[in-house]
Nucleic acid binder design. Structure first.
Length: 207
DNA sequence: TAGTACCA
DNA sequence: CGCC
């Protein structure tokens, strides 16, 4: 149930897109990814202020944030290694919900401990916005907020539960969005609790 | 402007 | 809000 002003056109919530078995399989694959590409702590450009969320990536490009800025790069910021391959289940998801878009290049992995939050922001570090951003929620339920394409536009909030998929396409591609809070103990998927969010993106224009 | 505060 |  969405509370507040409706999200822009092109926003889609696909509740429980992944069933429990598929979620468990995805978590198993993510553990292998994170063993090779450990979670790191992103920092705000200029100020160096830490995010409460920890991050990693898989795919050919990964999003990183540090004192120097936000960017996509082919290697992990601390190990210097290439990002691990994107799990096939995620490529399959992209094909199913973003059929007209070129292959996804980046999968940002955000880990929210139960106290972590993400302020309202736009995903706009990509070089093209015609492909959607596709998100997968795993683990504890979160309160997600989405507004319009300006910071002052009215927002709405909704709960995202484990297995839910969100598609930010069309007008909603550049909508401000964020995570207000994670509800502790709301899922048994992750042994140590918290929430994993995956966001699949196309970064570079299709040639 | 991916931090914070606040959110009716 | 106050930051670059």
């Amino acid at each position: 149930m969405t509370k507040g002003h409706p999200p822009p056109a092109g926003f889609r919530l696909l509740p429980e897109y992944f069933d429990r078995e598929a979620q468990e399989a995805l978590v198993d694959e993510l553990r292998l990814v994170l063993a090779k590409a450990p979670l790191f702590q992103p920092k705000m450009p200029k100020t160096g202020k830490a995010f409460s969320v920890r991050m990693s990536n898989c795919g050919s490009l990964g999003w990183v944030a540090d004192i120097n800025g936000y960017r996509y790069q082919p290697t992990h910021p601390t190990t210097g290694e290439k990002w691990p391959e994107m799990p096939s289940a995620l490529r399959k998801l992209w094909k199913a919900v973003a059929a007209d878009a070129p292959e996804p290049e980046a999968c940002l992995i955000n880990y929210y401990a139960t106290t972590a939050k993400m302020g309202l922001h736009q995903d706009k570090d990509e070089d093209m916005f015609s492909s959607p951003v596709v998100s997968v929620s795993l683990g504890d339920t979160a309160t997600f907020r989405i507004g319009g394409t300006t910071r002052k536009a009215p927002t709405s909030s909704m709960r995202l539960t484990s297995g839910d998929v969100v598609v930010l396409g069309g007008e909603s591609r550049l909508a401000y969005h964020g995570i207000d809070r994670v509800l502790p103990g709301s899922s048994t998927l992750l042994k140590n609790g918290g929430r994993i969010n995956l966001t699949l993106r196309r970064v570079t224009p299709d040639q």
